[in-house]
């Protein structure tokens, strides 16, 4: 093999040989530039498309449109409901994602791969199907009985549940990636120092997962803010009742108020930018990247 390599090298360096002639330094540089330019054009097109959509929104709307949108009682209600539901969804998601993430990384059990696949269901299912599935679930006898005491469907709790279904899946992925990065050795040392498993978790593991927790919270909040399909099916789109910001965009579009829809969209774009900046600031790109 080594001999063959030497032979082909000598053939390539010999202009009289039958092998492909080697490029001059200038030709090599030109070839490299063309290659990189092709990659940049292909990738750059997508980046430009993303920027263009945001800029189109920015240039379409005016401060007047934004002001009028913010003055609308319906839109103000939607903003308040979005902020409230997203915050509650985030808390619920962390409450569930932390134990799931910890158990899935630290404990090996039979059927783990099945649980793993189940946890990804909200990520792969079409959003409308999630909403429809929730609707069907709440038609079953036990949950219909619950609804007589505590209304969920087409009420505010349904918004939180619909957002939670998707946002939590992303929080779980982020927390799993976070716990995978924390060496179990630290926990083991804590056990020898006198900790119970629970003390080791609260005193060593969770503080070490602080950045991952912030990333999971931010990601869950952002996913919840953008959730629309499950909410439309499971909560309806009743103004001043179950209207969140994506519902507002849909309702404004449906009545032909494009300016209002774009103004509300810009509010959501601004929230997304804040989220991206926060995630970059906390510097936990890896869990985020892996979760995405």
């Amino acid at each position: 093999m080594e001999g063959a390599g030497v032979q082909s090298l000598s053939m390539a360096s010999d202009p009289q040989s039958d092998g492909a002639p080697i490029l001059t330094a200038a030709q090599q540089r030109r070839s490299d530039r063309v290659f990189l330019l092709c990659l940049a054009i292909l990738g750059g097109t997508y980046v430009l498309l993303l920027l263009a959509t945001v800029l189109a929104d920015v240039f379409y709307t005016t401060p007047g449109h934004l002001w009028r949108a913010l003055q609308s009682p319906e839109i103000r209600h939607a903003i308040r409901l979005s902020l409230l539901s997203c915050s509650l969804t985030t808390l619920l998601s962390l409450w569930v994602a932390v134990p799931i993430g910890y158990l899935m990384t630290r404990i090996r059990f039979r059927g783990q791969s099945v649980v793993d696949a189940v946890l990804d269901i909200p990520i792969v299912l079409p959003p409308l199907v999630i909403g429809l599935s929730l609707l069907i679930l709440f038609q079953t006898a036990p949950l219909r009985a619950l609804e007589r005491v505590f209304p969920v469907t087409y009420a505010v709790p349904s918004i939180i549940l619909a957002q939670f279904m998707v946002a939590c899946a992303f929080a779980v992925r982020t927390m799993r990636a976070t716990f995978e990065q924390i060496s179990p050795r630290c926990e083991q040392v804590a056990l020898t120092l006198g900790c119970t498993r629970s003390q080791a978790f609260w005193m060593v593991v969770l503080p070490s997962a602080r950045k991952g927790l912030l990333t999971a919270a931010t990601l869950a909040w952002a996913r919840a803010l953008g959730e629309f399909g499950p909410i439309l099916v499971f909560s309806g789109a009743t103004r001043m009742k179950t209207e969140v910001l994506p519902t507002t965009v849909y309702l404004e579009l449906s009545i032909g108020n494009l300016e209002g829809a774009v103004a509300v969209s810009l509010l959501m774009v601004a929230a997304a930018v804040v989220v991206l900046v926060l995630i970059r600031t906390w510097g936990v790109e890896q869990p985020l990247n892996r979760s995405l």
């Binding site: 050795r185 804590a190 020898t192 120092l193 900790c195 060593v204 070490s208």
Partner: peptide, 20 residues
């Protein structure tokens, strides 16, 4: 007995210090 009750100190290769 649990690790906590054994009265053993452990020093791993990398120290496994608690970063926070």
């Amino acid at each position: 007995e649990s690790p906590a009750a054994r009265g053993v100190g452990l020093v791993p290769q990398d120290g496994a210090l608690f970063q926070h």
